[in-house]
Amino acid sequence: MIDQIFGVWNYWIVFILMMIGLYIVISKKSLLKKIVGLALFQTSVFLLYITFGKIAGGTAPILTDNVNEIYSNPLPHVLILTAIVVGVATTALGLALTVRINKAYGSINENEISASDLVEYHKKYHEVKK
């Protein structure tokens, strides 16, 4: 039982970070905070991959004269390098959109944005009625 909890503590961290990130994405009204949550969520996945790749006592996988040296699996790291780039692109695009939204709506709060869209809709509707 203790092993179940503390023996795999790295997975617990991944899991907790993941849930925090997802919770932020779902619950926060601020568009900026959502992106922060998303970044956290993605980072937790990076950790998950790296946890797989790590071998206790292993070093960087660089060829040396010592044939018996233990080294970590390099593939997850490479994959995560790609995933980090993707994550950066996502975050950058999200931030850029947030900036543009702020410019267009004067707010980055979801509720205020939908309220102002509603106002716009009603204005248009009344114009049609006139």
């Binding site: 950058a92 931030l95 702020n102 709506y105 004067g106 707010s107």
Partner: peptide, 15 residues
């Protein structure tokens, strides 16, 4: 270019 696009932006209320 990321730096350029965010550097000069005014994050205040709607200008």
């Amino acid at each position: 270019s990321l730096f350029y696009s965010f550097a000069n932006f005014n994050f205040g209320k709607k200008n």
